[in-house]
C-alpha cells in the first residue's frame, strides 16, 4: 500500500544529479543566457554613469544634470553632517504608519464587502466617489485638521494605500470558493468559523498583492506630504535642495528615496513568501 501511494505521489526527494544535467546543451545555453543578462545589466549601468559623468559640464552644464561623482559626494556630505539618517528615519516611520493604517483599513473594508454583498451594494458608489478625489487636494484639509506634524503625513499616505489594498482584498474575498464554504458548513462551521478559516486565509493571496503594490504609494504619500509641509524627512530634503539649486543634493535624496522604496518592497515580498509558503510549491 505505502509503495503504491509513494509511486503515485511523484513527490519523492529530488533525483540524484544525473550526468545529463552537466552535458545537455539546453542546460548550458540557459546558463550562458543568465550570464549574458547579468553582464549586460552591469555594463549598461557603468556605461550610463560614465556617459553622464563625461557629459556633465562638457555637453550640458552640471547645474542641470549634476554628475555621478558630485551626487556621491553630496551623499557623503549628507551622511557626514547628520542630515541623512534622521531624514530616512522620519520618512520610514511615516511610510510604515501610513502603510499599516491604510492597509488595515483596506483589509477590513475589503473583507466586509466580500463577506456581505449587501454592504458592498450600499457602499459601492461612495467608495467610487472617494477614490476619484485627487488625493493631493486633501493635504490642505489635513493640515487644517491635524496640523503640519506626523499625523498629516501618515493620513495622507494611508489614503493612498487604502484603495489598492481594499480592491485587492475585495476581489480576493469574492474569489473564495463557494463549494468550500458549503463543505465546511456541513462540518458544523459557524459564520465566524467560515470567515476565519476560509475567507481570511484564502483572501490573503490577494491581500499581499495589494500590499506589495501599495508600498510605493505609502512612500510617495509620505514624501509628497513632507514636500508640502515639513522641516524633516526625505521629502523635505528633496524640496530644500531643489530650492537651493543644489542639483547634486536633489539627486542624492532621490537616490536614497528610491533605495528605501526598493528595500520596503523587498521586505513585503519576503513576508509574503513566508506567509504563503504553501503556494511556492505550485509556482
Amino acid at each position: 500500500m505505502a509503495e503504491t501511494v509513494a509511486s503515485q505521489a511523484g513527490v519523492e526527494s529530488r533525483p540524484p544529479i544525473d550526468e545529463v544535467f552537466l552535458v545537455d546543451p539546453s542546460v548550458r545555453a540557459r546558463r550562458r543566457q543568465t550570464v549574458i543578462v547579468a553582464v549586460a545589466r552591469i555594463a549598461l549601468a557603468v556605461a550610463g554613469l560614465l556617459a553622464w559623468e563625461l557629459a556633465s559640464d562638457r555637453l550640458i552644464s552640471s547645474f542641470w544634470i549634476s554628475s555621478p561623482s558630485a551626487i556621491w559626494s553630496a551623499l557623503l556630505r549628507f551622511t557626514a553632517d547628520g542630515q541623512l539618517v534622521p531624514a530616512v528615519w522620519v520618512t520610514l516611520l511615516e511610510t510604515a504608519a501610513g502603510f499599516a493604517a491604510g492597509g488595515a483599513a483596506g483589509i477590513l473594508v475589503g473583507l466586509a464587502f466580500g463577506i456581505s454583498p449587501i454592504i458592498a451594494r450600499i457602499l459601492d458608489p461612495y467608495l467610487v466617489a472617494l477614490n476619484s478625489i485627487p488625493r493631493v487636494a486633501l493635504i490642505p484639509l489635513f493640515i487644517l485638521w491635524f496640523g503640519i506634524g506626523f499625523e498629516t503625513k501618515v493620513l495622507f499616505a494611508a489614503t493612498l494605500v487604502f484603495f489598492p489594498v481594499f480592491l485587492n482584498t475585495f476581489a480576493g474575498a469574492r474569489d473564495v470558493d463557494r463549494d468550500l464554504i458549503d463543505v465546511i458548513r456541513v462540518m458544523g462551521a459557524s459564520r465566524l468559523d467560515v470567515i476565519r478559516r476560509v475567507f481570511v486565509p484564502s483572501a490573503l493571496v490577494w491581500v499581499f498583492a495589494g500590499l506589495r503594490m501599495s508600498i510605493p504609494f505609502a512612500l510617495i504619500g509620505a514624501v509628497i506630504a513632507e514636500m508640502f509641509t515639513s522641516n524633516e524627512g526625505l521629502g523635505y530634503l528633496i524640496a530644500v535642495t531643489a530650492n537651493q539649486y543644489d542639483t547634486a543634493g536633489s539627486f542624492a535624496s532621490l537616490l536614497v528615496t528610491t533605495v528605501l522604496g526598493l528595500v520596503l518592497t523587498w521586505g513585503v515580498s519576503q513576508a509574503e513568501r513566508r506567509t504563503l509558503r504553501w503556494r511556492s510549491n505550485n509556482a
Binding site: D177, D179, V183, V186, M187, G188, S202, L276, W278, R279
Partner: peptide
C-alpha cells in the same frame, strides 16, 4: 445538516 459529510468532485482541501 451537520450529521452528514459532503464529498464533492473537487477535493476542496484548504491549500494553505
Amino acid at each position: 445538516n451537520t450529521q452528514v459529510s459532503y464529498v464533492t468532485q473537487k477535493d476542496n482541501l484548504l491549500p494553505w
